[in-house]
């Protein structure tokens, strides 16, 4: 039995491919057994540092604009003490840093970035965005075991 896994999908399904993070959660929520605790976020916030204390492993899933050779990337995520200007919108690294600093807890953390292409006001993913999502999900299946 793997350690409990927290999976945070970041994005907005009303902004085209910005919904990739949530679509990832929607897809893996159909898996049996459930892959972990799923949390949907428009953006990461300071309070998420407290949530992280309950899990030894966390996966942040977000859409990205940058070119990804495979359509996505999966990389370790480390604490980062650099705060965002807007305070109520934090990076995964900043939330990990707050978790470590305030609660002395550092979960094993990964960032899954799925390449998107269109960010306009619209629901639904682009064809290429959906292809990237499917590839990311395939990589996640063995990763969760």
């Amino acid at each position: 039995m793997p350690d409990p896994l927290l999976i945070i999908g970041i994005g907005n399904s009303s902004r085209g491919d910005d919904g990739l993070g949530w679509a990832f959660l929607d897809t893996i929520s159909q898996m049996q057994p459930p892959p972990g605790q799923l949390e949907y976020r428009y953006q990461l916030v300071v309070e998420d540092a407290e949530l992280l204390t309950r899990y030894p492993r966390v996966l942040f899933v977000d859409a990205c604009e940058n070119d990804q050779p495979d359509g996505f990337s999966l990389e370790p995520c480390r604490p980062d003490p650099v705060a965002e200007i807007y305070t109520h919108q934090q990076t995964p690294g900043a939330v990990l840093f707050l978790c470590q600093e305030l609660y002395g807890h550092r979960p094993e953390a990964w960032c899954l970035r799925i390449q998107g292409y269109v960010w306009d006001f619209d629901t639904g993913l682009t064809v290429k965005g959906r292809e990237n999502l499917e590839k990311a999900v395939e990589v996640f299946k063995p990763w969760q075991i």
Partner: peptide, 10 residues
């Protein structure tokens, strides 16, 4: 910022 607050006054 809040990160500095966290460091200074947990």
């Amino acid at each position: 910022n809040i990160v500095a607050v966290a460091e200074a006054n947990k």
